[in-house]
Simulated scan of single mutants.
Amino acid sequence: MPPKKKSKPASKDAADVKRPVLASPNWPPLQPLLPESDLVLEERVPSQIVTIRNFFTAKLCRDYVAFLSALPLVTTPGKPKKGDAVRVNDRFQIEDAIFAERLWSGTSLKRLVCGPDGDDDPELRTKLTGLWGGEVVGLNPNIRIYRYRKGQFFNKHYDDANNVVIPGHPSTPAKTTWTLLIYLSSPITGCLGGETVFHPEPEPTRKRSKTEPPPEPYVVDLEVGLALLHRHGAQCMLHEGREVLEGEKWVIRSDLCVRR
């Protein structure tokens, strides 16, 4: 997929945006979780969209929604800055490397994304490294919490890639390559609408007639505990968060980071 032109709307969740320093929340434990053997990386659109069903259990989602509801969420302005996509939601954003590491290593995410440790399956590890755009070293410490209430949405946009540093001994220079979204709500919890919709572009080598319709959008429905990974940066697919029709849509957001 070719790089996007400057006129295209982009997400402004860049890690280098200056934000006030906040104290890290006392995040609830990431328990209970399903065993890794019960989880599967499902590549829904090759090299573009990957999901993990039941990454969070229903109980863990309920615990987190109750906790996140008490955070000081800020409503984004209805009129965006020039070049930004229209987004209306409530959000909480914080640099929290400890929680990012818990999400990465304290769940099955690291092993699912990177494959088995050691030389058990080098072919799989090589394939996964190619999929993610490099050696994945962790999650973006920039943690974002989104709440979409009835009537709130996120218009069509692309997610930017960013250079970040993964704290450690020593710290690791990295860059983000895939967006991670963890859905905590769905129609089962009373949330209607709010689907994430991707809009594929026509193949550049294929000429399309004026009367031919554009490619069908790919819709990811909300599922409690679903982890959605999608490629971002120069190869990001145009996508949107549809308007929530009833209830509340809760999402935890970070990004996969590869060594640079």
Rank of each mutant, 00 (worst) to 15 (best):
P72F: 08
T57I: 04
L22T: 03
K81Q: 14
D120G: 00
I182W: 05
P46V: 10
L192C: 07
M1P: 13
V244C: 10
S254W: 00
E203D: 15
H230A: 01
N162K: 06
P28W: 08
S24F: 03
V220M: 10
V45K: 10
K18V: 13
L109D: 01
R259W: 03
F92L: 11
L245F: 06
R253G: 09
P200I: 03
A97S: 15
L226P: 03
G168L: 11
F198W: 13
K59C: 04
I188H: 12
H232D: 05
C257H: 02
P3Q: 07
L109T: 00
G193D: 06
R260H: 06
V86Q: 14
V17D: 11
N163V: 11
C257A: 13
D119W: 05
V165R: 07
L192K: 15
E212A: 15
E203G: 06
D63G: 08
L128T: 03
D13N: 05
A14Q: 14
G241D: 02
G233W: 02
L245R: 15
V50W: 01
T179Q: 02
L238R: 13
Y183A: 07
L226E: 05
T75E: 15
T172N: 06
M237C: 10
D160M: 13
N89C: 07
T75I: 04
K150L: 07
V88K: 05
I166C: 03
N140I: 05
K249V: 04
H199F: 15
P167W: 06
K249I: 08
H232A: 02
S24D: 10
P217H: 12
Y158V: 04
S105A: 14
T189Y: 07
L229N: 05
K18Q: 13
R44M: 12
A227I: 12
V65T: 15
K249W: 01
L192V: 08
G168Y: 07
P2H: 12
P167I: 10
I252A: 03
D16L: 09
P9I: 00
T211H: 12
L128E: 04
R206Y: 07
G115Y: 12
L112F: 08
L73N: 09
S254H: 00
V220D: 09
R53T: 13
L60V: 08
G168W: 05
H239P: 06
P215H: 09
Q152E: 15
K249H: 01
V50L: 05
P72G: 06
K110G: 04
E216Q: 13
G151S: 08
P173C: 01
G190N: 09
V220T: 14
D84L: 08
L222T: 00
P215V: 07
L256M: 07
L222H: 04
W132I: 09
S47A: 11
T189N: 11
H239E: 08
P20K: 11
G225F: 10
V219R: 15
T129V: 08
D117F: 05
D84R: 11
I143E: 02
K82T: 14
R144P: 08
L184F: 02
L103V: 09
G115V: 09
A100M: 11
S254C: 07
